[in-house]
């Protein structure tokens, strides 16, 4: 049984302009000890997916409409607030994009860490403190003892992100959701943070759901990848396959738009058009208006998920209609 199994999840926002489906019928799972990458452009529903898992979708206007989120066989969609609270931070932890604002500016790092432990464990103050120091050391922060007395504004962005990771890992969560953890950091620190997460994944056997828009990050750490576009999953496979043999035109476009250091080109490839406003495309494939290979069918019907090849490789595109064989030779330059 996978650690986390999501089936048919729909999360919508109900605004004055009507219902906006941010996440629309997505299915994926995370296995024990696995790092799953969730890739997509801004506004494609990555973050809403993670908030849905945590039960933190801002409500109103957001609401999980249907679907199921099974965590260790337990249904999270209709769990009570009380149940969710005991799972959050204990079984599933989360780190955020902006390390500069993710810590309360008024309290010392140590107090915030100890408070996080005390939310879930009935430990004595001393034990909490030792655990906090242990975690700070584990995430590679020097002079952990004196850091306990520091205020957030005294730390750099990279250090704060480490503190956030330490805080998330305090209670040995089974699943760590990292929502663009490296986006706000510079490249050298990005690499360190990714390596740290990979290490924690190995040593503490924590599964990680890594949300990112950076394919380089995916290539670096992920085992499997889910590609999202406009609230739907368009492709899902293991990391190596995705980079060697991408199937969906959107994934191909994404990969083609990553600058390559070996080939000199004047212009970087970009997918024509913009991400559609959520809810603006009512029928057909949501990528069709930007797709160079779109067929008439693509504008009228929503493509189902096709499984191709022996390896689990799912793709939501009519091009793979015939027994998993592409209808056209597809090339994207």
């Amino acid at each position: 049984m996978p650690l986390l199994q999501i089936e048919g999840l729909c999360t919508s926002f109900f605004t004055d302009e009507g219902e906006i489906p941010a996440v629309d019928h997505i299915d994926f799972h995370i296995n024990n000890g696995e790092i799953l990458g969730v890739v997509g452009e801004s506004g494609c529903g990555k973050s809403v997916t993670s908030l849905s898992i945590m039960g933190l979708v801002p409500s109103p206007p957001g609401k999980i409409k249907s679907g199921s989120i099974l965590f260790q066989g337990e249904e999270l969609v209709d769990a009570s607030e009380q149940q969710m609270r005991s799972i959050r931070g204990d079984e599933i932890a989360m780190i955020f994009q902006e390390p500069m604002t993710s810590l309360n500016p008024l309290f010392k790092i140590g107090n915030q860490l100890i408070e996080a432990i005390r939310t879930h464990r009935n430990w004595k103050h001393k034990k909490c403190k030792l655990r906090a120091i242990e975690m700070l050391k584990l995430v590679g922060l020097p002079r952990a003892e004196s850091l306990m007395n520091a205020y957030p504004h005294e730390l750099s962005g990279g250090m704060r992100q480490r503190v956030m990771i330490a805080m998330a890992m305090l209670c040995d969560p089974k699943l760590l959701i990292a929502d663009e953890p490296t986006t706000a950091l510079d490249v050298t620190i990005q690499k360190q943070i990714l390596q740290l997460m990979k290490k924690l994944n190995k040593t503490m056997e924590t599964s990680i759901m890594l949300i990112t828009h950076d394919l380089g990050v995916v290539a670096e750490v992920c085992d499997r990848v889910v590609v999202m576009y406009a609230g739907k999953i368009v492709e899902q496979t293991d990391c190596v396959t995705l980079f060697q043999n991408p199937k969906h035109p959107y994934t191909k476009g994404l990969l083609a738009s990553v600058p390559n250091i070996r080939s000199k080109t004047d212009r970087l490839y970009s997918i024509p058009g913009n991400v559609p406003k959520p809810g603006s495309i009512q029928q057909g494939c949501r990528f069709a208006p930007r797709c160079e290979l779109a067929m008439d069918q693509c504008f009228t019907e929503t493509p189902p998920i096709y499984e191709t090849e022996e390896k689990p490789h799912e793709v939501r595109c009519f091009l793979y209609d015939k027994e998993g064989e592409p209808r056209h030779e597809t090339t994207v330059t």
Binding site: M94, E115, T119, H120, M164
Partner: peptide, 14 residues
């Protein structure tokens, strides 16, 4: 709306 509030919620605070 600050991120540290979301962060506190994600820790499971009441």
């Amino acid at each position: 709306e600050e991120e540290y509030i979301t962060s506190a919620k994600s820790i499971g605070m009441s």
